[in-house]
Design a binder for these strands. Structure first.
Lengths: 338, 338
DNA sequence: CGGCATTTTTACAACGTTGGAACAACGTTG
DNA sequence: CAACGTTGTTCCAACGTTGTAAAAATGCCG
């Protein structure tokens, strides 16, 4: 069996507490004893029992990361960064997958009691404001990306309206006149914000907002992008550009366009959102909004750390905007004839 | 604060143990009391303190998943499946990222004592056999994918030799004569197995194994695939087909080929390995070996569960092969002129 | 060398849970 | 009605750790 403090103490010939003191770096230990304890520690290969320690300390050493699906590149990349950021605070990360369903998001919120986790980072898709009422607000919670309005909860995200506006503006600057949008979804807050940016950019360019060019998507997978694009291509007058609300939709859209014999960017310019690794290598490579994912992860984790450290908080609910850039790639190269 | 058994007991007017009995489904509780306890449970919103429970039971309720990087699609997809499989055993999954470095793989193995986890699933890349000696073999360990030879540890993977042979055979069947390989890496066991399959298939087709067509890769990222492909295209006599040891390498290779003005599959046929979602939507879509990832995840988790359940085991070390298929897509379509 | 301050060590309790044993209540049986 | 088995409940201890407080050892001063 694994060695405990008791075993180490017996071997070193001191009390359990002295060993504990050495392990935790308490100052007043006779050098002689310190040496003996350290030897015993090494000899037994002692590892503290985290569970027992946390039980005693009233902390768990875990934070939860609740997201739709790890197999979606954006979330995989984000999770990787969150885990790395959490390590700096000596936290382990528990990942909970919700498939973007409200039920599972809600149950993740309630099931993970304060016994289990010290805090949670949540990337919700379907949660409504009232779901948060059920949540025991005993541990810090940070929302990333999606933002349930009217709920006083810390939030970290990019400026979605501005990002979308930037993306669409880029398309109109290239001279595209029929700019479609894929990803409308009234249940997603970010989708509404991106719609807003889309409309604003069209307005600035003096272009009309045409309902027929706005395609909804429930999920944001490649398949949905392809489907939406097929629909757009079946229109009497198809678009000459499309702004997709994430990279997967864009990849799917480019695929459908290719199947249809269209050339990207010549016949159709495409912009995505997220700057997943994939978008830099696709053929053609994908112009996309590049949020600073590392900043998102670090900010969210640090925010939880701060709330944990100062629990009886009077520092107000945070709504932090992290930076983004537009990565211009082949999918929006200028037409040679333009 | 969160409710404990004591609080619930006080409210219900029974002893702590009776509440515990109700919570754990112990049979002999007076209906009257059961009702009272259940009401109190609901009223307080009691959640068991997992740490304390595990401390008492000597189990942790966690398994570790040690892998190179969550942001790599294959591992993201695998992690998603492992988490789902683990849920069926009431396990939480702790994900540890190693970046594929030997140091971090080793430290993950030792740092996660038996206090922390009930078992571990390991997808190693750089570990040598001797590293396992350091590992306290107190908890079940399953290796997926890579297999450190000479170490008696459970292992789950596809038949890499056969898979590679199948992939290359597919290329030679299409009439390709100069079939390159990208991904040679003597430090990776699977790479050697895939090399073996590659050589075997060439042999069967009566083709020579040419050193110049075999390109090493340390990491298996898109960037490495592109780099390797650029090298191949600089040869006096470039290949007409390439077998990449994973999908990312293949995506990178296709990207480099496109940059070079080559048409895939006409000028160059490409086969990948892993069947990540991305490969179905790339342009052209990628022919690839499709391991049954779900089977890998389930088998690995179930194996751990079995070893945990029967610890004083005499059931021998397992080496389980999971099925795979070859998904033929556009990147290896037959030449129209052939 | 007694007294006192400082350093070092230890005993004890507690965190929340559950297994085991002990105990209590009950109905049944001889 | 005594003995018994069954059902239901409680008490105690323990899992491994650390905070508190008290005890012990040490060093210093007069």
């Amino acid at each position: 069996m694994a060695a405990t403090l008791k075993d180490v103490a017996a071997l070193a010939g001191v009390s359990v507490k002295t060993v504990s003191n050495v392990v935790n770096g308490y100052g007043f230990v006779k050098p002689e004893n310190r040496r003996k304890v350290e030897e015993a520690l090494a000899a037994t290969g002692y590892r503290p029992n985290i569970g027992a320690r946390n039980l005693r300390r009233g902390k768990t050493g875990f934070i939860a990361l609740v997201l739709p699906e790890l197999s979606i590149p954006y979330f995989g990349e984000l999770a990787a960064l969150v885990i790395t950021a959490a390590q700096r605070h000596n936290w382990n990360v528990l990942i909970e997958q919700t498939q973007g369903t409200r039920d599972r998001e809600r149950s993740a919120l309630t099931a993970m009691g304060p016994h289990m986790i010290d805090g949670a980072i949540l990337s919700p898709q379907a949660l409504a404001a009232e779901d948060f009422a059920a949540f025991h607000r005993e541990i810090p919670l940070v929302m990333v990306g999606e933002h349930a309005v009217d709920v006083p909860i810390d939030h970290v995200a990019i400026d979605n309206v501005l990002a979308a506006r930037t993306a669409v503006r880029h398309l109109t600057d290239l001279g595209r006149r029929r700019v479609a949008a894929i990803g409308r979804n009234p249940r997603r807050g970010t989708a509404s914000l991106r719609m807003e940016g889309y409309r604003a950019a069209l307005g600035e360019a003096g272009l009309p907002v045409l309902d027929e060019l706005i395609v909804p998507a429930t999920e944001y997978h490649r398949r949905d992008g392809a489907e939406a694009m097929r629909h757009l291509l079946s229109l009497p007058e198809p678009p000459d550009a499309v702004f997709c609300f994430n990279d997967l939709l864009a990849i799917g859209a480019m695929r459908a366009a290719a199947d249809h014999g269209l050339r990207v960017p010549h016949d159709l310019a495409v912009v995505g959102f997220d700057n997943t690794e994939e978008s830099a290598y696709s053929i053609p490579s994908l112009t996309t909004i590049a949020p600073d994912k590392s900043a998102i992860a670090t900010t969210a984790v640090d925010l939880i750390a701060r709330r944990v450290a100062e629990p009886a908080e009077d520092f107000p609910v945070q709504d932090i905007q992290t930076p983004f850039t537009l990565k211009v790639r082949e999918s929006t190269a200028a037409r040679p004839d333009a």
